[in-house]
Nucleic acid binder design. Structure first.
Lengths: 235, 235
DNA sequence: CGATTAATTGATACTTCTCAAATCCTGTGG
DNA sequence: CCACAGGATTTGAGAAGTATCAATTAATCG
């Protein structure tokens, strides 16, 4: 798991500017650099485990992760995603509560572990950093409200159409135009909040209606306006 | 709307200790006290309006509110509640985004308006206050994850049973043992994420099964273990 | 190249929504 | 205080949306 990224100082880090550490001074970045540990998580590996108390956060250098909770009878619910530049575990650290969800790597993921204490030290020194953390948490809170409303009011069909658009917005597309994230049908179902079979049936319908092109786990959106209409997406 | 609570200084405020201002020094409390405006909202009055940019936050002196979003075809989704001691509008202020939801008084509510600038001034001075704000936002984020999982995986029947228990935990009970909050059937439906008629039918079933006693909008929980079992509530 | 896991399809049952109609409240003005 | 209008609540019937179970086929990984 350890890797040689440890040689890289944080102020030289290529993703520094898109992380919440972008307001830190050189000295403050050195505090992080001196205490961080860089690791690699293999695809499918659990990075943090629901119910545990983490000793710090991870900053994603490169990769994609899912945040997921255990629901009824062990069924997984995917709450959100994280990608390059995002911080993992901050919710638990800042609320001083156990992890409310697990985090699993969707592909091989490089991340830097920053210990709890150094994080709090910087919060104490740098109110801009504190504000940035608040901004992120409060933004996520707004997103959560939107997800709650969708789950409560939209049909599965509507939610799936919207989710395809959200996946494209979140992860972008590959050279071939496919969504740049590989999810099983079951994962899509656990994201949308439905049964795997329903997801498969609806994806097939969308394919029949020429809204998407399916090739195994590769999904290409070819009629986004129509998907947006089906999903009641207005923005 | 204005009221004479303005005479009360914040350091003497009876609810100060249960608010996030409880870490402020006397001087810092005076900054708030000098800039605050106390107001009263009538039952049903909109305190903040979805999409607007608030100029500050409200601290609830006394009362109960609902936070609600507009969903499909104007249907209301209730996201959460607020009560005495809670802060309103902080999500929008701290994320620098328009309000993601409206806030409406469920009963006559006394609240103090604290302007945006003074809030940021204190954040700059007092990292314990910043941490407290982060703690609240991150705690709410964990709650939101739980709500998302419930909406995605539980049946309406399960969600309603759980919601009754949550309402009792949130608002407590009156002398007669009823939930200390008055909601229409439609509001309960908008909270659980279902149709009004479904809520009515299920409440009637719970009444038949002697789990609750209904008298108009007064609801008394008489068999909480059974409700917890129906709602798959384990904690 | 098996062995396992994932994806697909069909049939059926169940939950929940929608529409319609009737009754009950509640606040308000006379 | 009463009558009344308008909203809230309740109940029924039928339609629609989803889940579940079972069986088959396809894909993937040592």
């Amino acid at each position: 798991m350890e890797c040689n990224d440890n040689n890289v100082r944080c102020h030289q880090c290529p993703v520094k500017d898109i992380t919440s550490f972008n307001t830190l001074s050189k000295d403050q970045l050195d505090v992080i650099a001196d205490s961080k540990t860089c690791v690699v998580f293999k695809k499918g590996q659990i990075i943090m485990h629901e119910g545990n108390k983490p000793n710090g956060v991870y900053c994603i250098q490169n990769g994609k992760c899912k945040t997921h909770k255990l629901g009824i009878e062990g069924k997984e619910q995917i709450i959100r995603f994280a990608k390059t530049g995002d911080m993992l575990g901050y919710r638990s650290i800042l609320s001083d509560e156990p992890l409310s969800a697990s985090i699993t790597a969707l592909e091989d993921t490089h991340a830097c572990f920053v210990p709890r204490q150094e994080l709090f030290d910087i919060i104490d020194l740098n109110s801009r950093f504190s504000l940035e953390l608040m901004r992120i948490a409060c933004h996520e809170l707004g997103e959560a409200g939107r997800i709650i409303t969708n789950l409560a009011q939209k049909t599965v069909r509507e939610r799936l159409a919207e989710m395809l658009l959200i996946l494209e917005k979140t992860f972008g597309i590959t050279d071939e135009g496919n969504l740049d994230v590989s999810l099983t049908r079951e994962e899509i179902a656990n994201l949308v909040g439905t049964a795997t079979e329903s997801t498969i049936r609806l994806l097939s319908e969308f394919k029949e209606d020429k809204l998407i092109i399916l090739k195994g786990r590769k999904i290409k959106l070819v009629n986004k306006p129509k998907l947006a209409k089906i999903g009641n997406v207005f923005d």
